[in-house]
Design a protein around this nucleic acid. Structure first.
Lengths: 180, 180
DNA sequence: CTTGACTAGTTTGATATCGAACTATAATGG
DNA sequence: CCATTATAGTTCGATATCAAACTAGTCAAG
């Protein structure tokens, strides 16, 4: 399980000239190391995401995917009903993707769709009791697995990650803003 | 761009009873808050990944995807040649997926495939000059974008994320081990 | 040797996602 | 009122990914 992957460490000679945004006080080494460090951050984040989504989908009922769980979780957390386009924006997927997900979930009766009174273009989606049950069952499988992973971690690591959460939020917001 | 998503904050009443692995010294609040915190960590990681991959693919030539860039980057960093199965393991994708990626990249002449002397089952893949060029061009587009994002971040955030890198590695390894 | 187990790679069918085109409804500005 | 513009949702074609079945080569034990 080597796992060295994705956006990895760059060999120095490969850098294009000119590192915009570098403060004059940066040493040459800082300039050269900065992108490599960030590549590694994004790389680890990518792998953690890949592994955690895969783990979740292994726990879910076989026809349920991460996308479906996200929708269920959204309703449990924030309540319904919601319009499809609102859900699509929340998850940063296209409207077409959300149509697909919701059609499947409606077929499975995990959600119910009703017309949006007052706007003939729109719809209202809400979770059903079956959806609530499916979500609760997923949690019952998920939480022990999460415990199992976390119990294997050094407490310092756990604390570091918890402390890094606000920084992750800031990074996410910066990426989101850069998305113009 | 609300972005509240995925594995979000859980409402307390929804927890199934029994939180395995909890130390007796944990307070009740710790027990209830722990999974919510972890959900948020995985949630932020998921969004950061989604946004950063999307950003990268916006920069890449239109037929190049993240998967292709990863392969190019792997060769630049670690050199070639490599077997397909080795690449598949490095990126934690299935052999079938790697077959697909490599066939496309060979069509684009970004990689070259040759027989593996001594093992009739296997192949050897290596990057071509065109592949090296494509990688370098991707970097030229990517690095300024990375700078742009990072320049918008509070230095404390930057430092926190860099400091959290070893913890992310540890989490990734724990997830990988839990993948039995 | 030959058989059985393992490994490398491909193929296939299903599904998730995207971007773009399309339909239908709403809102706005003359 | 009408024309234009914007928004909600669907559909379509392309592609990435997975799991599972399959082919072919290797290796080890008898």
């Amino acid at each position: 399980m080597t796992n060295e992957t994705a956006l990895g460490i760059l060999p120095r000679p490969v850098y294009p000239a000119g590192m915009p945004g570098a403060a004059p006080s940066d040493t040459l080494d800082d300039l050269l190391d900065a992108p490599r460090l960030w590549f590694r951050v994004f790389n680890e984040i990518g792998i953690i995401n890949q592994l955690s989504v895969a783990q979740l989908e292994r726990i879910l009922a076989p026809h349920l995917k991460f996308a479906d769980f996200r929708v269920l979780n959204h309703f449990i957390r924030l309540g319904g009903p919601r319009t499809p386009v609102d859900l699509a924006r929340s998850f940063q997927v296209t409207k077409g993707t959300m149509t697909h997900t919701l059609q499947k979930m409606e077929r499975l009766e995990l959600i119910a769709v009703s017309p949006h009174g007052g706007d003939g273009r729109s719809k209202l989606v809400d979770i059903t009791d079956a959806g609530r049950t499916a979500h609760a069952e997923a949690l019952v499988g998920l939480l022990p697995e999460m415990e199992r992973v976390i119990d294997g971690l050094d407490p310092v690591v756990v604390q570091t990650l918890k402390d890094a959460l606000p920084a992750m939020v800031a990074l996410r917001q910066a990426l989101d803003k850069a998305r113009d």
